[in-house]
Design a protein around this nucleic acid. Structure first.
Lengths: 231, 231
DNA sequence: ACTTTGCGAGAGCACCGCTCTCTCTTGCTT
DNA sequence: AAGCAAGAGAGAGCGGTGCTCTCGCAAAGT
């Protein structure tokens, strides 16, 4: 029942590889990820690494999975500390947590939300679930707010309306198309803001990042139809 | 006065290199960019390419410059076809043009707005000017609209307010901080929406891209304080 | 005790960016 | 016109990459 020493050793080496990979990601970026370098640091000959990781792409996939998990954990934990009925604060806290995690882990953020690594396509069946956690947080938030379509919602084509209706059962909250669209805009805008900071698009412009994010989160909160944070 | 055959030849080869590089970028992505492969396709030995391009990083910089120029040209041209006084349409058209260019040139879009190529930092003095053209379009648009700060603008910290005030002389339109911030949100949101589509973040969610973008552009237009497009 | 399995070592393939040297041709200058 | 400098390609080579294959040893299972 208990694992053999060999299994234990294997698990340990695997963990070492992933840890070194994360470190390499942080220092060299995703294109600098080198199986040979990891093997070298582990005191292994280059071919031995393939006993653990079948290919560089697979290592990338593992890193993406781990990163999505860490990202979801961080944001969910922050959001969970808010009073459930303080919807404005839940949104503000979520946005801040997304930024905080991204700034603390820029290489991982780039892996998740940056340009796809060329020639490599993450197997969606292994990443979509982990990647949906933060968006789902948002949808739940809007559902808790009891938001309804508003006459201020711009019109949308019938095809888009149908599509968003089709998505309703696949996500929590059962949001009507207009509200679902608001959530989409909020999340894409948030990611856009964070990516601009992390990817350096704001150089020579904004440097007051936390203040700027708070300001824009307040704007987006208004677009969503959320009240301001309490007190 | 006229250029010598040798200069002509050099210019031609340089143009060939850039064209092949753009093609390679499209098929292999930025990490697949290979000087050797370009040389091979040109019928040159690998070392000869260095007569034209001093390094891979320099080739990347050239591609970024060309891409920013093509991007700016495309969006400016589209926006210029709008009636000057139809501010809602100018915004809608700008947003659509950004998406159209990005979808038509996904690798170039990734180069400009995706994760920075690891280990490589674009020399900002060579890219910021070209990269500012579309944002400047937006600032001009808001200035033409004569937008003023509104009581609906969320508060911002004094430091952020000062910073945005400091930026005023460096950009056209002389926008007050609250209005400038609206422009920042609009552009980051637009880029976020487009990147989500181009980078595949919408898989299993939105597929009605043009309709979705129009819908969200209308929302953002309202946030900006622009009227709806005429007729 | 025997056999299967796991795992590291080593050599090797094809590719990459980049450097250095050598050669030949072009084009400018005296 | 002669001579010299610069341009441009060829070739060899360095160190790096991902990945494959074979070999041998030791641990695990029977």
């Amino acid at each position: 029942m208990t694992e053999t020493p060999r299994q234990r050793q294997h698990r340990q080496t695997m963990a070492d590889i992933l840890q070194l990979a994360h470190r390499q990601l942080a220092t060299e970026g995703s294109a600098g990820l080198s199986l040979r370098a990891i093997a070298r640091e582990l005191g292994l000959v280059s071919s031995a690494i393939y006993r653990y990781v079948p290919s560089r792409d697979e290592l990338l996939t593992l890193l993406i999975e781990e990163s999505y998990t860490a990202y979801g954990d961080a944001v969910e934990a922050a959001e969970a500390r808010c009073r459930r009925d303080d919807l404005g604060r839940r949104w503000l806290t979520t946005g801040r947590a997304v930024r905080r995690w991204a700034v603390a882990n820029p290489a991982e953020w780039a892996l998740l939300y940056g340009s796809p690594v060329p020639g490599y396509q993450a197997p969606s069946e292994r990443t979509t679930a982990a990647g949906s956690r933060v968006p789902i947080l948002l949808l739940t938030l809007l559902a808790d707010a009891g938001l309804e379509p508003s006459p201020d919602d711009p019109p949308m084509t019938a095809a888009l309306h149908r599509e968003l209706n089709r998505l309703r059962p696949a996500f929590p909250g059962d949001l009507k198309p207009g509200v679902f669209a608001r959530a989409l805009l909020a999340y894409t805008s948030l990611c856009g803001l964070v990516s601009f900071e992390v990817f350096g698009q704001f150089t020579n412009t904004v440097t007051q990042f936390p203040a700027h994010l708070d300001h824009q989160l307040a704007r987006l909160g208004a677009v969503l139809g959320l009240p301001e944070p309490l007190r």
